[in-house]
Structure formats: structure tokens, C-alpha cells
Computed example of a mutant assay.
Amino acid sequence: MKTKVCFLIDDDEDDREIFSLALEKATNSYSCITASSGPDALALLNADAPFTPDIIFLDLNMPLMPGKECLQHIKNNTKLANIPVIIYTTSSYSKDIDDTRSLGASHFLVKPPGLGILTRALKRLLSGEELPYFIDHSS
């Protein structure tokens, strides 16, 4: 069985490491590739070599290029437009939720406070379980 590719775009090294660990615990059908900035992610996504992830997790609050701008670039690219993008951020601000939904994000996941909660959330999302658009793990 071909391993699917999950692409995480997040400037925080610890968050990238925790996400990779949680993904590994959640499922063995996805490998994780990461980028630390919007420009790096877009360079990889737009490279000549075919790199098309099955799903993208995108942080909103990053230097160099905010997540919303990166999301616009992804959704405006015909090669990438149909890839589900899940916003993965510390923000639970309703304007961010509304803005990213209007830009084409599939879900909005507030970064949970622990590896176990993140693992359960990823297991649910990647198994195709129907989830509300906004998944808040703060409670």
C-alpha cells in the first residue's frame, strides 16, 4: 500500500516535531514532510519534481509569509487546489476561522495542549471522519 503524504507548514520546530510524533502514533498510512515557512513550502510545492501531498496542515502565524497568504497561493494553483488544507494554529479567533474557510480551508484545528489529544484529532481527521469545521481542543 502506497504511503500517503502529509505536509506540515509550521515555523515552530517543536510543533513540527510534536506533530510528526502524533501523526506516527495516529496512523501508519501517512508519512510527514515539513516546511518551516510559507516561501519554503511553496518552493517545494511548485518545484519541477512532482511533490503533491495528500493533505496539508498550515500554521497561520508565521514570519516571512502569513498562513492566509500561503493558503491563497495553494488554492490558486490548479495542481494544488483540490488538496485539503487544515489550518493548524494557536488562534481560535472567529475572524481567522471565517477568513480561512472563505479561502478554501477544509478544517480549522486549534493546536491541542498535548501529544495524546493531537494524536486522537489526527486519527479522526485522517480516517475521514466527519468533523465540525472548527475543532477546538482547549476544553
Rank of each mutant, 00 (worst) to 15 (best):
T89F: 05
S20C: 06
R101V: 01
T90P: 05
F134H: 13
C32L: 14
S37G: 08
N76I: 00
I18S: 04
E17Y: 11
E24R: 12
D54N: 14
P113L: 10
K2T: 10
K68Q: 15
K68T: 14
S36R: 00
F51W: 14
L64V: 11
D59S: 08
L45Y: 12
P84A: 03
L71N: 08
A81R: 12
D99G: 07
L45C: 10
G116L: 07
H137V: 04
L64P: 00
P113C: 10
I135M: 14
L21W: 03
L109K: 00
P63L: 06
D48Y: 14
T90F: 13
E69V: 12
R101G: 02
L115S: 11
A43Q: 11
A105K: 03
G38C: 01
L125K: 01
L122S: 07
G114N: 14
C6K: 00
S102M: 04
S139L: 09
S94A: 08
V5S: 08
K111M: 00
A47M: 09
E24W: 00
A35C: 10
L44K: 15
D59W: 01
D11V: 06
L42P: 01
G67Y: 05
D12W: 00
A26M: 04
K75S: 03
P53G: 07
K75E: 03
G67K: 07
G67N: 13
I83F: 03
F57S: 02
L8H: 06
P132E: 14
K75F: 05
L126E: 08
N76R: 12
S91H: 07
T89Y: 02
E17I: 13
F7G: 06
I74N: 01
L23C: 06
L126F: 11
K75I: 01
L122Y: 13
L80P: 10
G128V: 04
I33Q: 11
T78A: 14
D15Y: 09
D96I: 05
S94G: 00
R120W: 02
I56S: 02
T3Q: 13
A49L: 14
L44P: 04
D98E: 15
D48S: 15
P63H: 09
N46L: 15
A41Y: 07
G116I: 04
I55E: 01
N82G: 10
S29T: 15
K79E: 13
L122H: 08
I74T: 09
I55R: 08
K75D: 05
Q72R: 15
L45W: 12
L118A: 06
D11F: 09
V85Q: 08
L64S: 06
I33E: 15
T52M: 14
P66L: 07
T52A: 10
S31T: 15
S94F: 04
T89K: 02
I135Q: 09
R120T: 07
F7R: 11
T119R: 12
E129V: 03
A43T: 07
L115K: 07
C70Q: 00
D98V: 10
L64D: 11
T89P: 09
L60W: 08
N46A: 15
L118C: 13
D40R: 08
A105S: 10
D11G: 08
P50H: 13
K4L: 11
K75G: 02
G38T: 01
C6I: 02
R124G: 05
K75H: 05
A105P: 03
S36F: 01
A26H: 04
K111Q: 00
L126G: 08
K123V: 02
I33L: 13
A121C: 08
A49F: 15
S37C: 11
L42K: 00
Y93I: 11
N61L: 09
